[in-house]
Design a binder for these strands. Sequence first.
DNA 1: AAGTTTAGCGCATACGTTTGTGCAATAATA
DNA 2: TATTATTGCACAAACGTATGCGCTAAACTT
Lengths: 336, 336
Amino acid sequence: MAKETLISISERTGYSISTVSRALSGKGKKYRISDKAVEIIKAEAKKCNFTPSLVAQSLRTNKTRTIGLLVPAIDNPFFANIASVIITTARSQGYTVIIVDTLEMELDEQEGIKSLLSRNVDGILVASSGQTPDYLEQVNETSIPIVLIDRFFPNTSLPYVTTDNYKGAFEATSHLIEYGHSRIACIQGAPFLLPVKERTKGYLDALKAHGLGKNASIVGSNFSIQNGYLETKLALSQTVPPTAIFALSNTILLGAIKAINESALKIPRDISIVSFDDNIYLDYLNPPITRATQPVDEIGSLAIKILLQSIQSGQRIDTKIQLPSRLIFGNSVSRI
Amino acid sequence: MAKETLISISERTGYSISTVSRALSGKGKKYRISDKAVEIIKAEAKKCNFTPSLVAQSLRTNKTRTIGLLVPAIDNPFFANIASVIITTARSQGYTVIIVDTLEMELDEQEGIKSLLSRNVDGILVASSGQTPDYLEQVNETSIPIVLIDRFFPNTSLPYVTTDNYKGAFEATSHLIEYGHSRIACIQGAPFLLPVKERTKGYLDALKAHGLGKNASIVGSNFSIQNGYLETKLALSQTVPPTAIFALSNTILLGAIKAINESALKIPRDISIVSFDDNIYLDYLNPPITRATQPVDEIGSLAIKILLQSIQSGQRIDTKIQLPSRLIFGNSVSRI
DNA sequence: AAGTTTAGCGCATACGTTTGTGCAATAATA
DNA sequence: TATTATTGCACAAACGTATGCGCTAAACTT
């Protein structure tokens, strides 16, 4: 079956291209195409299994029904889960999703945006690895709507959907304190990221609220497993090591666990641990990990909804949403 | 900045559209455009930050530099990992990836293929949820190259890259047998999938090789956590329960562990467990899980390479590859 | 019977590229 | 100086679709 087009159908049915186009796009009434013509055309289209070229449609209508999704690492379960709900939600509305894995690199992100722009995507969702949102805001203002997920920026005009990182971290830290911990090491991701800043602030404020401000210890530089591993190694080798670790992501957590496993220490007997993020595996770890969870599904589906609304209305929407974090209790924290 | 086009640059530099096009696409020499003209045009393009419309290019050249990737569940770490390497490899060659999450449903897969076709993707990678590859083969033969990953079909003309499931399962089962297990329950995914068939065959043959053929017990119906959970519950409630469980995927494994945790049994003291698939979390489980791993990176990068080669050569490539599985030892198997 | 409405459809253009071909002007050759 | 070769570029068509507008013929009106 050679590629079918409006033209080929037009030739075979004897109707003009425009009539075929209108008949097939359901605009028969609007343009007064006779029922008989519509029927003939639709029958022929079905017979030869015609599907219109989205490329040509896009060129003509300037809409691609495609949205771009930029994430720092698609193999991180957190982003994989978000991608999952975004893809299926988008699909249910007739949109497909192009995924760009930015590898936590701002440059790759910028290049990715450019690539998406040249592809004329209708909108962009981004969990940014960047330090400033300038280039994102430029895009948003003049051409294509952008919605931030998870990672956001201070004083940005861009809409975002994220977690209440501050409160989540505050609660997680408070939990440790209530269990008697006073030396809690906090291992962070890239410090310039706002969610990270909020988490460390929550950590700090919780300490201060209990008069432990001077015990604060925030270390680490990125969201890699390696970072979690090395910082934990370091922390454990101190003369007075911490009694608890607060890992600011599931990746950092894994590194921390690895370092602890390599030591003589046992969780939670010798050292307690609390993490940020959630995923199904954390319940099966040894022991199950107490963690401040992010509402992944809600983040994804809210973000895509806002984006689609912005696309369809043609207006920029200024929705900034922080969804509540929830503490899930495992067995990784002991009383002191 | 309004949308720049060849036309706007043409107007501003005084050169014709075709000259601008050739200058910018590096065909200056071929079409005898003077160095001076090329320089002027490139300067202007850079100044106004011009990027050609891929949509228009696609319409003209019939190439979209986009490939479609269909997976049964992007939030399954196995597929997330594969997607990750595919996305970055593709990108390094100037291709972007549209991901379709088929939710293990053949109908969604077919519809997804259709959607990708109407988008004129240059090629398709698919981890199929289907029972027969007819519709895939049709596409491959007449228009767009398709490469199967992980899931493949008997006697198909489609190229594929997958794991040597038979050998992996054979070795995993043999390992259990060597450790003294004779009642091993095998919990499978959708039985019509060829990889599943090969795994169960490996399991069976290993049993037979040790004269345990009559002990074979293959249960389960799909790759869900739920399936692993329920089948394990069932197995454990038998009057003579198995001493070991062979879970044919990481998802089934999770369900099995959950069921075991809800019982009085301990892994590996009371019951041993071996799994298929690999991911970083399995090392951190309680206990670390012995498993037959699949070479995820190689599968992904080989598949995309074969696809791109097929795209660029315009020829169908008949490469069928089974990469070796490797047994990784955790602490989930005890000697009997 | 002459004019007016309405139904039913086709023409032509535009979207932004790529590319085969043609046509001047200049340079090389005789 | 007349002819040919070469340089440097522009014209125009094509990809497949959407859509404003206009045209014809039939039906209706008075």
